[in-house]
């Protein structure tokens, strides 16, 4: 529009007949812009949908390959092969135990940790909060090697409770940080009223604060659960026996058994050497 009109015309268009003429003059250009925007969005959509679509399609494909060929035949034979106790159900139960327990402990522990941070004036409050935010940013992958050697030293490798505690430790910083934020939103006056009526801090936390921040607690529970449900690296390193693997690891072991990882290759730390360390 700017290129087509002279500056005088532009000024006139702007001041006088703006609502009507502007629409008429600019509409082809706006149309072109909108069409190209939708075009780009469509390309992005293809990029995001294609791999997902093929994941679904190849799950129903009868031929035993990961890729999906053109003639599509719907078949549930793959599901029938996989849906059994050792390949699917047991790992799913393990996943639920690992991530569920982690979520519960994280929520309870961060509730107790966030309470003084939100309610009391303490000298170490600010440094503590900075440490919490700092540790949410640390790459967990980078501490797994020392964690593994520590677990091996104290005979904790392949111990589900220890793995749960480690997962809890890594989800706590973010949990405490979120929990403190939600708790700051609960008015102190409500709690003071409870204190006047003779409630202890534990009573007011349980009967006043926790119920009022239930949505926040649910957010932290779900967030912790989902992120640990998808956690592959931690159980992969710290657990050893097939019967304890969560679903994320058993998918991997299933593939590496079925699959010939010819060119790219895959390795799994042998169990022999864990023993020499002990």
């Amino acid at each position: 529009m700017i290129g087509v009109l002279s500056s005088g015309e532009r000024r006139a268009a702007r001041s006088n007949a703006r609502p009507r003429s502007r629409f008429r003059i600019t509409s082809p250009r706006i149309m072109a812009a909108r069409v190209s925007a939708y075009g780009v969005l469509a390309l992005i959509a293809v990029f995001f949908i294609a791999p997902l679509l093929w994941l679904v399609l190849s799950a129903f494909e009868p031929a035993a390959s990961v890729g999906s060929a053109a003639p599509l035949v719907l078949s549930f034979s793959n599901f029938a092969k996989v849906l059994n106790w050792t390949t699917t159900y047991k790992p799913l139960i393990n996943s639920a135990i690992l991530s569920g327990t982690t979520a519960v402990i994280t929520v309870v522990a961060s509730l107790f940790a966030a309470y003084p941070l939100s309610r009391y004036q303490m000298r170490f409050r600010k440094p503590f909060l900075y440490t919490i935010v700092f540790s949410t940013g640390l790459p967990i992958t980078a501490i797994l090697v020392p964690v593994y050697s520590m677990f091996a030293r104290f005979n904790l490798v392949d111990n589900m409770s220890a793995v749960i505690l480690f997962m809890t430790a890594t989800s706590l910083p973010f949990g405490i940080w979120l929990m403190k934020g939600f708790m700051d939103g609960v008015p102190l006056e409500l709690e003071q009223a409870a204190w006047v009526d003779g409630a202890t801090w534990l009573g007011s936390l349980r009967r006043i604060v926790a119920p009022l921040m239930l949505p926040g607690i649910m957010v932290i529970t779900i967030f912790t659960f989902v992120s640990q449900w998808g956690n592959f690296f931690v159980p992969f390193i710290l657990l050893e026996s097939q019967s304890k693997f969560p679903a994320s690891v058993s998918i991997y072991t299933f593939f590496s058994q079925v699959w010939a990882w010819s060119t790219t290759g895959s390795w799994r730390r042998s169990r022999f050497c864990t023993r020499c360390l002990r």
């Binding site: 540790s135 505690l165 809890t168 430790a169």
Partner: peptide, 9 residues
């Protein structure tokens, strides 16, 4: 919370 984070983090 401090105990868990201290031991495992």
């Amino acid at each position: 919370a401090l105990g868990i984070m201290g031991l495992f983090f």
